[in-house]
Design a protein around this nucleic acid. Structure first.
Lengths: 210, 210
DNA sequence: GTCTTTTTAACATATTTATGTGATTTTATT
DNA sequence: AATAAAATCACATAAATATGTTAAAAAGAC
């Protein structure tokens, strides 16, 4: 038996969900709430398998609710419900440990399937949400891995610069003379086309050199 | 009619897939290949709606194949097939514009559903893959947005430092005296708990201050 | 064995940066 | 009006950095 707690401010949708779930074999609604104001205690009290959490609610909204749940319980499966696939909310919800993200227009049969999926360790999401997630992947980590052909030693020195070491400290760290450090750094600047320490550091981050 | 081209080195699985898809109403296999060596020309030639692409193949593997496809065609839907949900491959495939990621053990009915889903703009993935994707979200972008309470001007100065400006250049840029720049930077260092320009720059990147 | 690159190092010097100590003016907040 | 925070500027000085020139081992490639 899969136990569910529902957070949803719209009474009709809340009732509809409850009837659907309670009317299905193997599913049971333990409680429903119209806001997340006391979500931490409520989830602790009922220990449901799955929480259905509306995103848009007056008072504490679904995202805040999710955070509060995760602060006290890392195990319970939380499925976010939303009308629109709002990019920012999707991202934030997934970042904060939501187990899935469903549009409210999901057909009832699918919804039950998704709930079950979540209890089995899956991460159900409607395909439009999944599409958004993929887009985030494509945008975020551009591997513009330009290669400046830094030698091993140069890479090492650059790493220390990034870590905030002064020339003197680098020399001590690598057991070489400070003038040697200068030599390396001069070469690094040439290769990176910069002429100051902070530019080199910035470039190391921007171009993910380390 | 949804047209499909298959890349799969295992003859049995290739045949099985072909029969399944050809035997289903509204689906048709245009061609099958056992490696990706000429994937660019082949995809151009057939212009399929969907490409089913095995990840592990001798010669050009599926990931390389995907890149080659995306180099010439941004529209065709590419679904990756794999035996295991290998974290690294999933990430790389999604980064390179895969439209979905399926385990080979996906039941036939689901597979057809997923193919259709892809043509409709969805991003089908088996739930175990989706779970991995969620985990990536939770790990990667820690918004450790510690707030160091930099003032507006300080933020501005820090930005210029990150952009490689010297004190003199900052003064010119902001129409203030170089001693004022010093003042601001001194304050910035206090707030960030650093004591050099490059440390400040590094911290700006690490903590996403700008 | 020669050539190239890398790593090492020294010396010199102009510029930049870091740090300290004040102080005045603006801008918000109460 | 009083207070606090932010922004402005000045003077001084030690330390660090950037730049140039030069050169000798060491390691790898051909």
């Amino acid at each position: 038996m899969i136990s569910v707690v529902i957070y949803e401010d719209n009474p009709q949708f809340r009732e509809g969900l409850t009837m659907l779930i309670n009317g299905s074999d193997g599913f049971s609604v333990l409680a429903t709430y119209k806001n997340c104001n006391n979500v931490a205690e409520e989830v602790k009290k009922w220990s449901p398998d799955v929480v259905l959490m509306d995103i848009n609610m007056p008072g504490t909204d679904g995202l805040e609710g999710l955070k509060k749940i995760r602060a006290v319980d890392a195990e319970v499966k939380v499925l976010m419900l939303t009308v629109f696939d709002d990019n920012k909310n999707v991202f934030e919800a997934l970042r904060n440990g939501a187990n899935g993200y469903l549009l409210k227009k999901t057909p009832p049969a699918k919804l039950l399937e998704y709930i079950q999926d979540a209890t089995l360790g899956g991460a159900p999401m409607t395909s439009s949400i999944a599409t958004q997630v993929l887009k985030m992947f494509q945008v975020i980590p551009q591997t513009k891995n330009q290669d400046y052909c830094l030698s091993e030693r140069e890479t090492q020195v650059l790493q220390l610069l990034v870590d905030g070491f002064s020339y003197k400290m680098i020399a001590a760290e690598l057991f070489i003379a400070i003038d040697t450090v200068r030599s390396h750094i001069k070469k690094i600047y040439e290769k990176l086309h910069v002429n100051s320490k902070s530019e080199a550091v910035a470039k190391a981050f921007k171009d993910r050199l380390l």
